[in-house]
Amino acid sequence: MTPKSVDDYIQEGIYGAKEIHREERGVFLSTFRERVELALTIGQVIAPNIYPQVENVLKVQAQAGLEMLLNGTIAYPHLSKYIKLAEQYKAPFTIVQNEEKETSIGLLLAHKTAVDRDEIFIRDEMFQREMEH
């Protein structure tokens, strides 16, 4: 690793610290795709019922450092059922406000380190409708 030059310090002062995979973090509610255990789209979060897959993952893995990330563009009444679920299983949660990057992801269950799941989405009818656009 090379030492920082004066120009590097000036650039950081003007633009802030360099971010790794900024686009990916924008889409995945401030985390990396490789850390995601399960993801719901905005439409799936807004649906009236809780997805049982979310509860099943929380039951099994909440104590393993799993965190729930929620899209802050979704109205609180839709998020509250998942917040209560996270509290029930003592899983930390964060409501992510990201005005810079638009994303169709409404909820993520993410680890602190990489798990590299092949499939993170619940591919139901709601998912298909949202992803066609």
Rank of each mutant, 00 (worst) to 15 (best):
M131N: 09
S104D: 14
M1L: 12
D124E: 01
Q88P: 02
I83S: 00
Q11P: 10
R25Y: 02
F121M: 03
L79R: 00
D118N: 03
L108R: 04
I122A: 00
Q44G: 09
E119L: 02
H111I: 04
P48S: 04
T113H: 04
Q61Y: 12
G65K: 06
N98V: 06
A114G: 04
F32T: 14
V36H: 03
V36K: 00
Y9L: 15
H111N: 05
V54M: 10
F28W: 07
I83H: 00
I74H: 10
R117G: 00
I122H: 01
T73Y: 14
S30M: 09
Y51G: 05
E87Q: 05
E119W: 04
E102S: 06
H21P: 10
K90G: 02
N56Y: 11
Q11R: 13
T103F: 08
T73W: 12
L85F: 03
Q97R: 06
A62P: 15
L85W: 02
R35N: 15
E34H: 11
I20A: 13
A17L: 13
Q61D: 14
L66H: 01
N98C: 09
I122L: 00
D124Q: 00
R33I: 14
L29R: 12
Y76K: 03
E87N: 04
Q128E: 09
Y89N: 06
E130S: 00
H78L: 09
S30F: 08
T41P: 02
T31H: 11
Y76A: 04
I50S: 03
V96T: 05
G65R: 03
Q44C: 11
L40R: 01
S30T: 14
K84F: 06
E130G: 02
S30I: 07
R22M: 13
E119Q: 02
R33L: 14
L85S: 00
V57L: 11
A62K: 07
S80P: 12
P48F: 06
L79N: 02
D118H: 00
D118Q: 01
T103P: 13
G72K: 01
V27L: 15
V57N: 05
K4Y: 13
E19G: 12
L38D: 02
I95E: 06
A62S: 15
F93I: 01
L108K: 03
S80I: 08
V6F: 12
I46T: 14
D8F: 07
D124G: 00
T2V: 06
A91D: 07
F28L: 04
I14L: 13
R129G: 11
F28M: 03
A64D: 14
E37R: 07
Q128G: 01
I50E: 06
E99P: 08
E87V: 05
S5M: 03
G43V: 09
M131E: 14
G16D: 09
L69R: 08
L29P: 12
